[in-house]
Structures are given as structure tokens and as C-alpha cells.
């Protein structure tokens, strides 16, 4: 059964349609790429699945349960982890503390007023940081990290929630090409080993073709193509958009 099923999702901003009638599903362990030019509606889709935006129409099902229109907090509790296009981390904390917060929240230990955070789930946090290659930075201030490292940190935070579904909005922006491949390969392993479903966007087409199981192409809010790498590469409509707008792999 699919982890995530999205049907007929739509959203308009002030009369302008950002996403129209988008439907898709993601299976456990599957990596589904959602690609499209700037302004295609990818982030809007993520926000409707993640609860940051309420859809105008359509439904979102997680493990067969409807989560349409729930808030981001409730959806996180249902086992959805997420990274943001514009990174969102806790700037007044160290890298490790960021992950500790995710772990504490996941284990419902937030409403405690006495035992200090320092020393709690340090090993788990460090293990997660090691997975994304941040172990050496655990004690640094989050504010001084390079942008690519912030993206890694977001992934570690999202994993702290032991998610069934990962939503990754441009997870490799700001990284060097080699790093991108590394991070997405890591995500690939997580998906395969733990059966996590992953929905991600990515502007680097090499990375997309390399790691994804399936690709969705969004243009002006509408799905125009779906298939594996070879099919998408050969799709005339997709070629038209990408060659027409000049957006190709590697940019951004």
C-alpha cells in the first residue's frame, strides 16, 4: 500500500492557480522526484502535504488515513519529516541541540521543566549527525554553518522524527555537485533500508535521474508527465519546457 496518496490537490493565490488537480502516490521505500521550472508549484505541493498550507480542493492520505487540512504539527506527529527550500533551523542552538529537540519531541518529552536537555539522547543525536556527515560540527552554533550543511542538518532533524514519509524541498541547494550526489545516495539508502517514502524536488537533473525511482513533471501547477528517467528524458512536452525556459541541469 502507498504511504502517501494525493488526489486532486489544488491551490490558488488571489485567483492565480499555483497548483491544479495534482494526483500521485508514493510507495514505501520509493523515491519520487517532483520536478518543474521555477514557480511550477512544487513548494506549494509540499506545503499542502506537510500542512503548512490548506488545500483549496483535493485530499491527502497518509497510510490510508486522511490528513487533508491538518496543521503541520499534527502531520508531523503522523510521521512526516520535512526539509524546507529556505532552511528552517533553531539558530540559537548548537547543531546537536537541534537534533535533540527533534528526538525529545518525538518521544513526547517536551513538557518537562526540570531535567536539563544537555546530555539527553546525545548518542542518538550524534548518530543521526554522523549519518548526514555533520558529526564534526555537532558543537558548533547553527548560525555559522554553511548553507549545504544546514540542509544536512535539516535532514538529520527530520530523521529524528522517525518519519514514514520524507518531504525534501530542494535538499541539495547550495551544495557542490559531488556533495549532492552523496546526500541523495544517502537518502536513497535510508529509503531502501527503512522503507521510508521520499518525495523530493531537485534542480540538478543528473541527481534526479540518478536516484529517483519515478519522476513527476509539474508545469504551471499542472502535472504534465510521469514516468522513469528514460521516459521523462524522451518526453517531448518535458523537453519543450526545459529547453524552452532555458533551465537545465546543474544550475541554481
Amino acid at each position: 500500500m502507498s504511504v502517501l496518496v494525493v488526489q486532486g490537490l489544488s491551490k490558488s493565490f488571489g485567483g492565480v492557480q499555483a497548483v491544479g488537480d495534482v494526483s500521485f502516490a508514493v510507495a514505501p521505500g520509493e523515491m519520487l522526484a517532483l520536478i518543474g521550472p521555477n514557480g511550477a508549484g512544487k513548494t506549494t505541493c509540499f506545503n499542502m502535504v506537510g500542512g503548512q498550507l490548506r488545500p483549496d480542493a483535493g485530499s491527502v492520505m497518509l497510510d490510508g488515513k486522511p490528513i487533508t487540512g491538518l496543521g503541520p504539527r499534527a502531520i508531523a506527529r503522523h510521521g512526516v519529516g520535512r526539509t524546507f527550500q529556505i532552511t528552517a533551523t533553531f539558530g540559537s542552538m548548537t547543531v546537536r541541540e537541534n537534533v535533540q529537540m527533534a528526538l525529545l519531541s518525538h518521544r513526547q518529552q517536551i513538557w518537562q521543566f526540570w531535567r536539563p536537555v544537555a546530555g539527553r539522547y546525545v548518542d542518538e543525536a550524534d548518530a543521526l549527525l554522523a549519518r548526514v556527515g555533520l558529526e564534526a560540527q555537532a558543537n558548533r552554533a547553527t548560525g555559522v554553518l554553511a548553507y549545504g550543511d544546514l540542509k544536512r542538518l535539516e535532514l538529520a532533524i527530520a530523521l529524528g522524527n522517525e518519519p514514514r514519509l520524507l518531504l525534501m524541498d530542494e535538499p541539495t541547494a547550495g551544495m557542490a555537485p559531488a556533495e549532492r550526489v552523496g546526500l541523495m545516495k544517502l537518502t536513497r539508502r535510508l529509503a531502501t533500508e527503512r522503507g521510508v517514502a521520499v518525495l523530493f524536488t531537485e534542480h540538478d537533473m543528473d541527481v534526479v535521474f540518478d536516484v529517483s525511482d519515478r519522476i513527476l513533471v509539474l508545469n504551471r501547477g499542472v502535472l504534465i508527465a510521469e514516468g522513469n528517467g528514460a521516459a521523462i528524458r524522451a518526453n517531448p512536452a518535458v523537453r519543450e519546457i526545459y529547453l524552452g525556459t532555458g533551465a537545465t541541469s546543474g544550475g541554481h
Partner: peptide
């Protein structure tokens, strides 16, 4: 944003 998405 981040606080809500870890369930706070």
C-alpha cells in the same frame, strides 16, 4: 515553521 514540523 521548524518547531511545528517537529511536532511542537
Amino acid at each position: 515553521t521548524r518547531a511545528q514540523s517537529i511536532g511542537l
